[in-house]
Amino acid sequence: MGLRVENLRVYYRTLRGYVRALEGVTFSVADGEIMGLAGESGCGKTTLGHSLIYLKPPMNYIEGQVFLDGQEVPIWDMKRMNEFRFRRISVIPQYAMNALNPTRKIGQLIADLLAAHGVDFKEILPELKRRLDLVQLSHEVLNMYPIELSGGMRQRAVMVISTLLNPSLLIADEITSALDVSTQKAVCEMIVEFRNRGFVRSTIFITHDISILYQIADTIAVMYAGQMAEKAPTEAILRSPRHPYTRMLIASLPQVGVRYREERLRGIPGAPPRLLDPPPGCRFQGRCPVAFERCVETPPFVEVEPGHFVACWREI
């Protein structure tokens, strides 16, 4: 069943008006799927991740529906969401290294958190220890304060905590951004391992690093300025992208074997629109080399091939 998001609109309320951070986002993530969510800074990927679990002011829910395993998720209701949080939807936050209370031992923290969800710490302890082994943390960490762990160890501890109750959906928000490449690889392997062992069913892996997604993601969704641009299996996104933004994004990745002293690395000219008062229609039209009259209307996010969705008038 997995996750289905329909026409989700979430705005930030600011003094100068609404910032339209998510504008009619529609997509689904299948059971066992690791969906990479890519896009440049400010395109709304973290806002999307947050709104699925922790939609708090200044974020404002405008409209849209979210279904998890066929059941509607009340993302607009902070209180009712507590039934879903941790048990069914969980998150590894961007700030995972600082996510633990500095004055509480990690074991006690886990016990407190589990007690709040009516789960007995002693019962789950053997499983917890197995998972610590899996991420190569000694059982000692349960008796330690976060300060006694390195940043990488803290992050692994948070990964174990967040997935302890086998959630249906895990949101991994920029978890590799602050890591060196070898740790990045280890973290990515753990995410895949968690999925393979059934600790989590579906995963949304938010990052701006497409090369990482190539290694772990089953599908990649590309966002642009608060809208879904394209979603397709990883190979399709990298080999045959359909949306002009995705094409230019992929083309601007450095390639092995090319000497960039002779050939300059290409970027995408221009800048994303201001989300306070974005132009009507496709938000990429201002930078798009193939834009035409139709682009002032918002393009629908349609399936052009099985599993390949694009929001572009040229591709329909």
């Binding site: 941790f86 600082n98 004055t103």
Partner: peptide, 23 residues
């Protein structure tokens, strides 16, 4: 950050306040 993490994992406000008070 630790308060936000607990909140996104659905910890009750009582627990979060307890931690915040102690710190």
């Amino acid at each position: 950050d630790y308060s936000r993490y607990l909140e996104s994992l659905g910890a009750p406000p009582r627990l979060i306040r307890k931690y915040a008070f102690r710190n």
